[in-house]
Design a binder for these strands. Sequence first.
DNA 1: TTGCTATTTGGTATTTTAGCCAAATAGCTG
DNA 2: CAGCTATTTGGCTAAAATACCAAATAGCAA
Lengths: 108, 108
Amino acid sequence: MNPNAQARCDARARVFKALGHPARLYMVEELGKGERCVCELTELLGLDMSTVSRHLAVLKAAGVVDDEKRGLQVFYHLKVPCVLNLFGCVEGVLESNAQAHLAAVGKA
Amino acid sequence: MNPNAQARCDARARVFKALGHPARLYMVEELGKGERCVCELTELLGLDMSTVSRHLAVLKAAGVVDDEKRGLQVFYHLKVPCVLNLFGCVEGVLESNAQAHLAAVGKA
DNA sequence: TTGCTATTTGGTATTTTAGCCAAATAGCTG
DNA sequence: CAGCTATTTGGCTAAAATACCAAATAGCAA
């Protein structure tokens, strides 16, 4: 892989990787409705708060979310709301998979 | 996380995860130009063919690519070309990151 | 200051991923 | 069939990701 392609793919992969975990994806989905503090997300996910905090750090490092401290709480919000558009296309992949599955079942 | 959200996020995350590796992303990019056999991708990536084969298996499991054997070779192609659209939005995230970086440097 | 709440960070155990080599498989071709 | 090529799979090791608990930090409030 040439250096340009390498750099480009590294950068893009970092974003996809950040989104490649159910808990993080759910947070992004929830943040699509508006900002949330860590404790709200923790409640929603049913994971240890330390785990949620680390997931949020991953999303932040990827540039997907940003945070803002207000009082005791830290509120996270989507940095680039367009991330939500990604879901539509992924849905396309999933539908295609579902059809393939149905076809396979139908064949059997 | 409720069961519906769980299932939805699991499914979506699987796709993002599959795209969350530079080598796999590069393959998808290349397959965007047309089908390629494993040996072509191997040459392009400079990895062991067994490694490339495993990466392709991951993409296939996620429903991003499909394969077709013809003679000795196995040709892979994008199953849902819309995946390429994802890159545009990811680019948006990256540009936002770049700007944040420049701003930070400017501030210093 | 002391205490209380929200969050992050250190430490650790477990699981998953990524890469290579070697061996197995599949499909030509002589 | 024997030999050759393309690909996948088994086995292994090193590195990264995930989750928890416990401890550190930050800020409000008594």
